[in-house]
């Protein structure tokens, strides 16, 4: 099981993928809003989106799992 984790603490601004989407390594999948900056978060592994564990507007801590890939 591969995960996309939050690169820093912040609020989820946009989720760019949906369950079932194929994602590639380095693809932006979530944009966080933190310290008044847009923080794009990339997938570190390729895979199909199995579960999205967060929603837009929710707070995530550093390293928190946001998306499960398979």
């Amino acid at each position: 099981m591969k995960q996309v984790q939050a690169s820093m603490a912040g609020t989820v601004w946009k989720v760019l993928v949906a369950v079932g989407d194929q994602v590639e390594v380095g693809q932006d999948v979530v944009i966080l809003e933190s310290m008044k900056m847009e923080i794009p978060v990339q997938a570190e592994a390729a895979g199909v989106v199995k579960e999205i564990k967060i929603e837009e507007g929710s707070y995530v801590g550093d390293g928190e799992a946001m998306i499960e890939l398979e």
Binding site: S7, M8, S34, M35, M37, E38, I39
Partner: peptide
Amino acid sequence: SKVKGGVLF
């Protein structure tokens, strides 16, 4: 700014 918004950690 491309990584963590360039914030200092």
